[in-house]
Design a protein around this nucleic acid. Structure first.
Lengths: 235, 235
DNA sequence: GATTTTTCTATGTCTAAACTTAATCAAATT
DNA sequence: AATTTGATTAAGTTTAGACATAGAAAAATC
């Protein structure tokens, strides 16, 4: 009943035990907990091992650690959630559906003001503009509206995106250094509705993402998910 | 031009340099990179330091590491994004607005099927149901629809949620062990629209969250943000 | 009393060395 | 040919010890 899983390393065992003490309120919010040296003695391990365990909990947001001041249980634990940015095809195939995609527009165009600003590129800079629909079992799953900066991704002009999913090609060929990501909700406009085969005005989950490498902004994309889609994170 | 920031530790310096080699395509996707011992020699540090740096990049999703097989650059880097689950009051105050909240409903009620299932509690179990509107400068910012399980959070029945923001009280008093979090989009229904002072049908960003501790599900909440709200994550 | 300086301590980081473990490859066996 | 066994390798983990450093507390100064 006490141990649920077997955290195979000493550091994880200690982290789990300390987490339990916090959740079970043996150590209350704001309390100072024993220092690393003391816990090392208690658990019969080296201080470095305790350090690793407590760092983990500090990363989780459960502990506040300061030199000399010691380690305290966070008062207002603004915990973090991470989620993996999904690759559409894998996502669809993981759900047991057959993946396909259709590029409905591909054109080299000057970047409109809003996109250029988001990417930090001059307004009107030539970019590749792509609109793609991703299908699961022939039902529209996701609508992708993407701008690609050929100056940050040399060679991209020559890619046939009918065959290569643009996201996958970029991710495989141009890893990014820095990214920005935002969720929002929008009412489907006429085009969204037509491509996602839904009614205008339907609420859509929107994921807006821009990525950069050493050469500048690689790409900026707006993903509109099919109505009812739910994006799950693991905290 | 080369170093943008000063990663004050050797491990971070190495991680930054390895990340650069990947982004600059000196080490391509799928390539095997030199082993820890070799990198330790190259950078003039102990192997443990290289290990720490490479673990960091593996956590980021840039590297795949396997015993005996070595370290490879991830072929399809499904990178992760983390975002801190915000505390409404802090979020509103950080934006320079004045925070206030109003509990529009508070009642002990049997949990409806959907909520009970989500929380893993028996259908019809007595729970505290709360509906709260959070305001920034007197404008509705977020609508909170929360179910609290008094069996996992003893003492919650006695709390005056008119004075204590329910989220903050829970977070401060009952840290959770496990959580579930999902984003979606919904068209505002009549009540959403009235409480958020918008029109029915407007697309709303919905955040659904459930948390557990040793005793079971603590709370399950549906947060509806004001129209146009954007939830930003860091890499 | 207010400010600056010094001291001291708990965490942060690193090292060198050892041991553990998963997985690969090759050799031996069925 | 297929399977088992065993050696080897590279990452995973831990340890003891050391030094660095932030920053709280105490001491010294103004």
């Amino acid at each position: 009943m006490t141990d649920r899983l077997l955290p195979s390393s000493k550091a994880l065992t200690i982290a789990t035990e300390v987490r339990r003490r916090i959740v079970d309120r043996e150590w209350r919010q704001g309390d100072r907990i024993p220092d690393e040296a003391a816990l090392a003695v208690e658990f019969g391990v080296a201080r470095a091992t305790v350090n690793k365990a407590l760092q983990l909990l500090a990363d989780e947001g459960l502990l506040d650690r300061k030199r000399r001041a010691g380690t305290h249980v966070t008062i207002n634990p603004a915990r973090k959630a991470t989620f993996t940015i999904p690759i559409v095809r894998e996502q669809i195939e993981a759900a047991g559906m057959v993946y396909s995609h259709r590029v409905v527009a591909q054109k080299i165009r000057p970047a409109p003001a809003e996109i250029a600003a988001r990417m930090g590129e001059p307004e009107g800079a030539a970019m590749i503009h792509l609109r793609t629909v991703h299908f699961g079992d022939a039902k529209p799953f996701q609508l992708e509206d993407r701008w690609i900066n050929p100056r940050a991704a040399p060679g991209v002009e020559a890619v046939d995106f009918q065959r290569n999913n643009p996201n996958e090609w970029l991710v495989r060929n141009y890893p990014w250094l820095r990214g920005q990501l935002a969720f929002s909700a929008e009412n489907a406009d006429a085009r969204d509705a037509r491509l996602l085969e839904t009614r205008q005005g339907t609420a859509l989950l929107i994921l807006q993402r821009t990525t950069w490498n050493d050469l500048g902004a690689i790409t900026s994309v707006r993903l509109a998910f099919h109505p009812g889609y739910c994006m799950v994170a693991i905290p």
